[in-house]
Structures are given as C-alpha cells and as structure tokens.
Design a protein around this nucleic acid. Structure first.
Lengths: 238, 238
DNA sequence: ACCTTGCCTTGAACGCCGTCACCGTTCCGA
DNA sequence: TCGGAACGGTGACGGCGTTCAAGGCAAGGT
C-alpha cells in the first residue's frame, strides 16, 4: 500500500494557491513543484536569509509579514522592502542574497532550494512569466519608494507610510469609500518604521504624535493605528 | 526581384546583439523580432516616455545613456535609474509607464510597440528568461540605491556616485588594478546628479570641490572627472 | 568685442532632523 | 507580585544640508 504523501494535497489547500506565482500551474505541474518545496514556520524576529550569504533558498510567503533589509558599514540599517502573503522571496538565478530576510510577525513560508527552483522555473515558462510580472511590479514599487527616500520630508514620509500600510494590510474599512475608521495593527516597531523611511525613531515618534494631536489618526495602542482623516493624511503625504 | 528589407540584417549588425535580452534568440527568432522593432535616434534631452502615460513602448538601449525619473507634487524630481547600452527600458505587461524616460546623451534605441513585444515575449521563453534575469538584477541595484538614499550623508552619496559612474562607464583605467587615472565624462549635469542622490545642486557642488581640494579627484572641465585616489574615495563612501 | 544665457561655484543664514538624555509604559519571566 | 528589560515618548541642542543670494565661467550669437 502506497501512502499518498501529505505533500500532495498541500498546494491544493494552500491559502495563496491562486495568488502566488504558482497560480497558473496545472495539477501535474503543481505536484512536481510540491515535491520540491516544504513549508516552514518562522517566529517573529527569526531570520530566514542573511545579507551577502550564498543564495540557497527562495520562498513564497504563505502567511505573515517579513522585511528585506541591508546595513551600512557603520551599523545603520535600511529596510528595502516588506513582503506579504503570496509575495515571492529570495534571489533566483543569482549567486548571493543581496539582503537579509527576517520575519516581522509569526509567518509561514514555502521554501525551495534555489537550484531546484531555478531548474523548475526554466522548464516551466508559465511560472517564469508569473515571476517576471511580480518582479516588474516589485521594481515599480521599489522605485516609487526611492522618491520617498530621496525627496520627501519626515511628515510626508510618515503620512505616505501610514497610507500604504492601510492599503497593503487591507485595513478593515470596507464600508465602501467611507473615509473614517481604517484600522490596522502595525507589523513593525517604531525602529523598523524608521528603518523603512530613512529616519530616526524619534522623528517617527514625533510625527505620530503630531498626526494624533491634529486628529488625523488615533493610536489605541503602540501597534495599532486608526486613520480618521484619510484625505487630510493624503494632503500631508503630497 | 524582392528586395531584402534593410531590417533583416539589422540585429546581426547590432552593437548589443550579444549583451541585450535578445542574445539567446536564434536566427529565425531574431528575424521575427526584427520585424517588430525599429531603431530610433534620440537627441540629448529628448524625452521618450512620460511618467503616467499609457505604456505603449518598450525598448533596448543600443547607444547612449538615459535616465528614468519621476517627480513630486511640489515639483521636485528624483532620478530612479540610469540605463546604459544593452539595458532594457519600459514596462512590459503593464498599463502605465510609472516613470519618465529622457536621453542624457545622444542615443539610439530599438523600440517596440508594447503589445507586440508582450506577445512575442510570451511565445519565446528564452527572451522572457533573459528579461527576468535583467529585471532581477535591476531590482537588486535599485534596492542597493535605497540604502544610499535613506542612510548615507552627502559625502558618502557623492563618493558612491563617482565610483559607480567610473564602473558603469568603464572608465579608461584598464591598466590593471592600477589605482590612478580612471577618467570619464559625466553624462549628467550637476542638477541631475543632485536628482540621483536626493541632494541639492549646491551640496553636490561643494562635495565635488572638497574631493578635488583633498586630492581625491580632478575636474579638468565641468563634465569630466578623474579619480586620483580610488581607495580613499571608497573610504569616503563607506 | 560685447552681451546673453545656461551652468556651476561660493558664501551666509536658516531650519529640519539627528543626537543625546531621561522618563514613562508595557511586557515579560522569575 | 515584583523586577528588569525592551520599547516608546519628549525635550534641549546642534550639525548638516537646504535655502536664498550673488558672482564666475564657458559657449554661442550679434
């Protein structure tokens, strides 16, 4: 009696089956890929990849939020990107991982040996195409962030950050385009927000305080944010 | 008598035939692609794409240097990237061009209607693979630039910029790893350098002056730079 | 030869944000 | 329940880079 490996129905039950780069694969392809990947749990704060290491792993994010970051020689850090469920992670077709990857929340990822993944991708153009579309979109997003880092002041940066977070986390306010009440829990500490925006923790804190004092947002607790005046916040972000 | 269109041997004679994304295509594929593209000349300062416009064109850079940029609501500009011969340009598989493209020097590009290119790419995985590798590399480069924008001071930014320019323009000093005498002509004005680095023109100018006074570089003319002390410049960039 | 124009350099003063210091709060495990 | 560490908020101060202003320099036209 041959036991069906648990892995076989893994992908079929995957929460991101229809959103990740594997979405266009058919059943037989999925089963093949299934054999290559394995699910892995990460605790908040746990590191998956280290900047400069040999690129051995790539992964899909199933659940949770992770950061990509690198540091300067003098110890400062810059967060290069934040990845969410269904996002792809790692550096295919490359020698070294150019940035570190760390879980911001508890997370599940679907990891592959890079060599396995590369081979599979080259043999399955539909997967490569998905990966290309995703990479192009990520490049666009990254370039937009350069405008923030290079040309915005602290107020504009923090306002932009809050608006983007509300959007990416799909903050509750599904009551149509109603302005009030977008609420979400930050997956980042103040220090990490500072590292995303190229600011210091103190400056971020002061901007939060000011936005709250001005009635644009509420801060029920350290990690929670409610956007009260979406339009006004957009003005600050301009 | 059927005249062979000039286009047929176009790609074969192309200066970037073996470096651009078309490098892996065979003769029949190249001929097909040839029928879709056309060569176009751009004068220095001429604009090829406008930020926010519908994405109608993509292109390969054959000769010259171009910038990708976008602007803030209040009129400031940020240069998002600089593209060199054999680089790919534009936004395949997307609705809108997320940044403007302008020639910094006189340039030749090989342009395609995006719809044509998208169709061709989907039918030719080898091309898509090349494009993917290029996009991944560009994403790495862009992310490294975020570290510069977010976490470096003016001196580090300008030093890094000069070193990168020397490398990308393949500055003369091919006398082995000899330190002295890397010379090149800047394809950017001081204002454009400022827009790359997220600084003002005055700050860029002052840093240039200081590096010259400290003997790290020479500035024979406005657009020419000689790196005299490569190692010392790297120290300033750290 | 002169003026015009665009680009770059230089100087002076301001102001944003980083730095430093300290305190309050929250969240742990002991 | 307590103690301690991690995290976050706030104030004072100063430095770095922007802003504002003026002048130098090279190229091109008349």
């Amino acid at each position: 009696m041959t036991e069906i490996p648990a892995a076989v129905d893994f992908c079929a039950a995957c929460a991101i089956r229809n959103r990740a780069i594997c979405a266009d694969l058919d059943t037989s392809e999925i089963n093949l890929l299934n054999g290559l990947g394995r699910r892995r749990h990460l605790k908040a704060g746990e590191q998956l990849l280290w900047e400069g290491d040999e690129a051995v792993l790539v992964a899909n994010v199933i659940e949770g939020v992770l950061k990509l970051s690198c540091g300067t020689a003098d110890g400062k850090e810059q967060i290069l990107g934040i990845v969410y469920p269904s996002d792809f992670l790692g550096r295919p077709f490359g020698e070294t991982t150019p940035y570190g990857v760390e879980a911001l929340t508890d997370a599940y990822v679907c990891v592959f040996q890079r060599a396995d993944f590369d081979r599979f991708a080259r043999e399955h153009p539909r997967l490569e195409h998905k990966l290309l579309e995703r990479t192009l979109a990520e490049l666009d997003r990254t370039r937009r962030w350069m405008l923030l880092l290079g040309r915005m002041n602290a107020e504009q940066k923090v306002a932009t950050f809050l608006l983007e977070m509300a959007e990416r986390l799909d903050a509750g306010g599904c009551a149509g385009p109603g302005k009030r009440g977008e609420q979400f829990t930050l997956p980042l500490s103040r220090q990490q927000i500072a590292d995303v925006l190229g600011l210091t923790i103190e400056t971020v804190s002061r901007q939060f305080t000011r936005f709250k004092a001005d009635g644009l947002i509420d801060l029920p607790s350290r990690r929670e944010v409610t956007i009260l005046e979406h339009a006004a916040l957009e003005d600050r972000a301009a």
